[in-house]
């Protein structure tokens, strides 16, 4: 009985881990191309989830239209956010920019509470079955869907950065902004693209988590989990973000298992990832996949 619980938790951990990985990837995308640590990443989830919820529940749109519409909204939101708030800050000290993202985080969280109220709102059931039985394990349908979509997103990220013109331009900008400009790349446009993609993909995670747990400001705490994930993976590594996300997801659920079985401290799973963060920072400050610069001797 106990081992089946452990299995269930490991599966949960992997599924939530891929979601963390996707959010962490979005975070890394912004950090890598614009050097901004975005503390408002969690709020992207929140805004995305509320938007989708509003479209489905209030505007009565069918989910399969509301979902892409949310994406489109977040795309425009990301571009506008970069253009209006962050573009004027280019060239300012990095700490000012980071403080602005902290401000944005508080602002959006309060605004969402103001518009939609402080209570969690459930999504109507989108899928006919709430959960699916796979080999004796219960997996919630939205999570299963998210797993599939996350994998698609990861593959398309990999493709985007390796083969697409804009992806190469983003990597070049991350490496050296002056060189990028000398190649005719508009750094402003790269920045806007980074924020847009990040906002869009985070919203996906927001919608999925919202469908399972209901939409509430707790979602932005979900976004906070990206910090252990990206620190474990290394701040500027996309692969690291995914691995970090999986590790954090697993640690969380294993912590819950140990806690429930032996320790009985309660709520260990929410703090465990942050313990890992501290330990990783002590032994590997650049994370598992952080950049090692090529040194030619």
């Amino acid at each position: 009985m106990q081992s089946s619980l452990l299995f269930q938790l490991i599966i949960n951990g992997l599924i939530v881990g891929t979601l963390y990985g996707v959010i962490a990837m979005c975070f890394v995308l912004i950090y890598k191309s614009t050097q901004v640590v975005n503390f408002a990443q969690g709020e992207f989830l929140l805004i995305g989830a509320w938007t989708c919820w509003w479209l489905v529940v209030q505007a009565q749109w069918p989910f399969w239209i509301a979902f892409p519409a949310t994406f489109l909204f977040m795309l425009i939101f990301g571009i506008l956010l970069q253009m209006i708030v962050l573009r004027p800050l280019i060239g300012e000290p990095i700490i000012s920019v980071i403080m602005v993202t902290v401000g944005l985080s508080i602002f959006f969280q309060s605004m969402m509470k103001w518009i939609f109220g402080p209570w969690p709102q459930p999504f109507p059931d989108i899928f006919p079955m709430k959960s699916v039985n796979i080999g004796g394990l219960q997996v919630q349908t939205p999570y299963l869907m998210s797993m599939a979509v996350s994998l698609v997103i990861m593959v398309s990220f990999a493709w985007f950065f390796r083969y697409s013109r804009m992806g190469l331009a983003m990597r070049a900008t991350a490496f050296d902004q002056q060189v990028a400009q000398s190649l005719g790349i508009s750094v402003k446009r790269v920045f806007a693209t980074a924020w847009a993609i990040s906002a869009m993909v985070s919203a996906l995670a927001g919608v999925v988590v919202g469908m399972v747990n209901g939409v509430s400001s707790a979602l932005s705490f979900f976004g906070l989990k990206v910090f252990p994930a990206v620190i474990v993976g290394g701040l500027d590594s996309i692969v690291g973000a995914i691995v970090g996300g999986l590790i954090v997801g697993l640690i969380e659920n294993l912590a819950e298992y140990f806690d429930g079985q032996w320790l009985h401290l309660g709520n260990l799973y929410t703090v465990a990832p942050f313990y890992v963060l501290v330990i990783i920072l002590m032994i590997k400050p650049y994370g598992l996949f952080g950049t090692r610069k090529i040194e030619r001797v």
Binding site: R165, L168, A169, R171, A172, V179, L183, G184, I185, I294
Partner: peptide, 15 residues
């Protein structure tokens, strides 16, 4: 761009 391949660098030139 040191962390890119030769072809990727060349492609960037054609941006």
């Amino acid at each position: 761009i040191e962390d890119m391949t030769i072809t990727e660098n060349l492609r960037l030139g054609a941006f």
